[in-house]
Computed example of a mutant assay.
Amino acid sequence: MRPRLLTTKRIVIKIGTSSLMNSDGTVDYQQFDRLAYVLSVLRNHGKEIVLVSSGAIGVGMNKLGLKERPQTIPEQQAIAAVGQSEMMNIYSRFFSHYNQMVAQILMTRDIVEFPESYENAVNAFEELLQMGIIPIVNENDTVAVDELDHETKFGDNDRLSSIVSVVIHADLLIMLSDVEGFFDKNPMIHSDAKIFHTIHSITKSDMDLADGTGTSFGTGGMTTKLKAARYLLQNDQEMILAKAEDPTLIFSVLKGEKIGTYFTNQD
């Protein structure tokens, strides 16, 4: 039992591209629907919800009928622009089934590094949450590229979700992944892998274990998730890493059930 989770009110949910797409590269509409249902129910129960969603490139590739991700930056920017619009259309459509309004927030790292931009971002989040609207956040992949002279890119949405959690003083970040949590070895390869149920600090040995490179659709692996958890622990905040396959497990997480890996400073 994890009693602190029973009182969480402000929650950031992060979901990756691989959890929103089918293995053949098509959009998993059922997953979008399940996620919209769960988050709408939470909002109806008084929770303040922010969704950090990857998927612009994956959805864009599906929309454009592309089977392989283009290598050039301009092509990726164009696909992200198409995909972000289509992804928000999908989210809006499914959330509307549950009478829940959503809003789009696209972020680049300079937003949280300049005080005035930081304040503007905070104000936008706070107003939307006060209005009962669920902000859907993504990195602005159309303009945030590594080749720009100034550092505007978060790098991945694992990091972005942890930064958003700090910006809005979230009680909890629930990071939905393609694995059930953080294991002592890769559970996709080793059947005897054991999950770490609770972690209080991220050690060098933990980082050495987390050397995955992610999927063909996404950009993150376990390393980026541990870095996000470490950032939250440094700010005395908490994170759950759990499997994205069935988003209704979020209900069980918030009941304090022992699901996934729980990163917390509390004993």
Rank of each mutant, 00 (worst) to 15 (best):
S161L: 04
T108F: 00
S19K: 02
E238N: 12
A228C: 13
P247E: 06
E127H: 04
I199V: 15
I13Y: 06
D171W: 03
V12P: 00
L20S: 05
V179P: 13
I240D: 08
H197T: 12
L241G: 10
Q100C: 12
L39D: 06
V102N: 00
Q237H: 03
L254A: 02
S165P: 09
N62S: 15
K63S: 12
F154G: 10
T248L: 01
T264A: 07
E86Y: 15
V102E: 00
S53M: 05
K194A: 10
V38P: 02
S252Q: 12
F183V: 06
L160E: 02
Q84N: 14
A228E: 09
M131T: 04
S96E: 15
K255T: 11
R2T: 13
S201Y: 01
V12M: 00
K14S: 13
G212I: 05
S19D: 12
N123K: 08
A193W: 08
F182Q: 14
H97S: 12
K153A: 09
E127V: 01
Q100F: 03
F32M: 11
T203L: 05
F251C: 10
L254I: 10
G221V: 01
A193K: 06
Q100K: 09
D141H: 02
K67D: 10
E75I: 00
V12I: 09
Q84P: 11
L232C: 13
L172T: 12
A210F: 01
Q30K: 12
M87P: 04
S216N: 14
L20N: 06
Q76R: 15
V38R: 01
L42D: 08
T8H: 11
V38A: 05
Y91F: 14
T152M: 09
T224C: 04
V143A: 03
K194M: 08
G46I: 11
E86I: 12
A56H: 01
S191K: 12
G55S: 04
Y98Q: 11
V41G: 00
M61H: 03
E86G: 00
L209M: 11
F217K: 15
G221P: 13
D171N: 14
N120K: 14
M1E: 11
H169T: 06
M21W: 06
E126I: 04
N265L: 03
V164Q: 07
E75M: 13
T108A: 05
G260A: 10
R2H: 09
Q266S: 14
D156P: 10
D33K: 15
Q84L: 07
A121Q: 01
D206I: 02
T8R: 11
V82I: 15
F182S: 09
L42H: 05
V253E: 14
S165G: 07
M21I: 09
V82F: 09
A56N: 11
A242I: 00
A80H: 06
Y118N: 15
S201C: 07
E75A: 13
R93G: 08
Y98M: 10
R10E: 05
G132M: 03
G65Q: 12
T213E: 15
P135E: 08
G65S: 02
R43F: 01
S54I: 08
V12C: 07
I133N: 00
V145M: 06
R93I: 10
V137S: 01
G218E: 14
E257R: 04
F95V: 10
Q104Y: 07
I174Y: 07
G218P: 13
